[in-house]
C-alpha cells in the first residue's frame, strides 16, 4: 500500500480490560508531507464510533499533533520510520489513542506550558503541539514498551 500504510482488522481486545473495542490500527512510515494519511485514518475510525462533533475534531487534532511530534522529535524529521496509531474505546467510556514509534524517546510531559508572550518576542513557531494535546485530552502519558515509545492519550466520552 502507498507510504507503508496498513491496517489491522477490527476486533475485541481480550486483555484485562473488559469490553474494549479496538479499531483497525494504522501502520505507516514517517513522512512530513503525508499527514493526510493520518487524518484520513482518524476520520475513517471516528465514523465508526459514537462521537460528538467536538470529540471527533479533538481526536483528529490530538492524533495529528502526536504524529507530528513523533516525526519531528523521535525521528528528527527523517522519512521512512515506522509509526503505529491505535484507537480504542474501553469499557469505562474512555476513548484511548496510542501512537507508537521506535525513535528517540522523549518525555513530552517534562515540557512546561509555552510562554506565549516570550514565543512572540523571539518569533518562535514551534512548541504548541504538545500543549495542544495536553489540553485536548483528559490524560496524556508516555511510556516505553519493549523497543517502542508509546504516547497514550485518553478522553472521557460524552456518550459512554
Amino acid at each position: 500500500m502507498p507510504h507503508g500504510r496498513g491496517m489491522d482488522p477490527p476486533g475485541i481486545d481480550h486483555d484485562d480490560r473488559k469490553h474494549t473495542f479496538t479499531m483497525p490500527a494504522l501502520h505507516f512510515l514517517s513522512d512530513m508531507d503525508r499527514v493526510d494519511v493520518v487524518r484520513a485514518f482518524v476520520e475513517d475510525t471516528a465514523s465508526g464510533l459514537v462521537l460528538t462533533k467536538d470529540e471527533r475534531y479533538h481526536l483528529e487534532l490530538a492524533v495529528l499533533e502526536a504524529v507530528m511530534n513523533v516525526m519531528i522529535h523521535a525521528y528528527r524529521s527523517e522519512a521512512g520510520h515506522p509509526i503505529r496509531v491505535v484507537i480504542e474505546v474501553d469499557g469505562e467510556g474512555y476513548l484511548q489513542v496510542e501512537v507508537r514509534d521506535k525513535g528517540v524517546f522523549f518525555n513530552i510531559l517534562d515540557l512546561p506550558a509555552p510562554d506565549l508572550q516570550r514565543h512572540i518576542e523571539i518569533q518562535k513557531r514551534g512548541g504548541l503541539g504538545v500543549h495542544l494535546m495536553r489540553n485536548l485530552m483528559d490524560e496524556v502519558a508516555v511510556l516505553q514498551d519493549g523497543d517502542e515509545n508509546v504516547l497514550r492519550m485518553r478522553k472521557r466520552l460524552a456518550i459512554a
Partner: peptide, 19 residues
Amino acid sequence: AFIASAGLGVLMGVLGPVQ
C-alpha cells in the same frame, strides 16, 4: 475547517513583527 499547531505557530511567529 481545521487548524493544527503548525498553522497557529505561523500566526504566533509573525505577530511580534506585525505588532
